[in-house]
Simulated assay, not measured.
Amino acid sequence: MRLTLQPHPDWPGDAVTGIEAEALRTARGELELCYSVTGAVDELLMPPFTQSVRTDGLWRHTCFEAFLRAPQSDAYYELNLAPSSQWAAYHFDSYRDGMRIADIPAIAIAASTNGGRYEMRAGLDLTALDLPTEAPWRLGLSAVIEQRDGRKSFWALAHPRGQADFHHEDCFARQLPAAEPL
């Protein structure tokens, strides 16, 4: 599923001209994500690639995010993926309430830059999460993009009115179909 992220109208930035994302559920219980950023990528503040470890606070700088929720549930998961290959996963009982670390194995992240395009790919094993394997999930994809001059832009499939808030119901804008059985 290829999707286009929209800039927040109050914080669009000027270095990025577009962000596309792909999300795919595999029959093995994995989620494959790809984010493609186009524009003046050399103007973006990208942390250097390092050891892939769980790290909090990634959303304070350039970070790609995915939000997953089962149908008819208030509980959801937030996944943060940094260009450095650091990552985080959280579980919430409801809108910004009951936050705790989600127990998932290490996340494989790869990144590349080619001219005016930056691409990050991530593979996540979600079998330990409390999400139904046979049902579609509600999906929110987003990105915080920091430019070298410190300005940030906020991108998502959809934005609520007012402040950028990727946890908001409006941001769970797509349905991610169940994987086809092997």
Rank of each mutant, 00 (worst) to 15 (best):
L45F: 13
L45A: 14
P47H: 12
P47G: 06
T50M: 09
Q51H: 13
V53Q: 14
V53N: 07
D56R: 09
G57L: 05
L58S: 00
W59E: 07
R60G: 03
R60C: 00
H61G: 01
H61F: 00
C63M: 04
E65L: 08
E65G: 02
A66D: 03
L68D: 04
L68K: 03
R69Q: 14
R69Y: 01
R69M: 10
A70R: 07
Q72F: 06
S73T: 03
D74T: 13
A75N: 04
Y76F: 13
Y77R: 05
Y77C: 08
L79S: 06
N80H: 15
P83C: 12
P83V: 12
P83F: 14
S84V: 10
S85A: 14
S85C: 13
Q86Y: 15
A88G: 07
Y90G: 06
S94F: 15
Y95A: 06
R96W: 05
R96K: 15
D97E: 15
G98N: 02
G98M: 03
R100I: 00
A102H: 08
D103I: 00
P105N: 11
P105Q: 09
P105S: 04
A106E: 13
I107T: 04
A108I: 11
A111F: 05
A111C: 05
A111P: 04
S112N: 07
G115M: 07
G116H: 07
M120G: 06
M120T: 13
M120S: 11
R121L: 04
A122V: 03
L124W: 12
L126Q: 10
T127D: 11
L129V: 03
D130P: 02
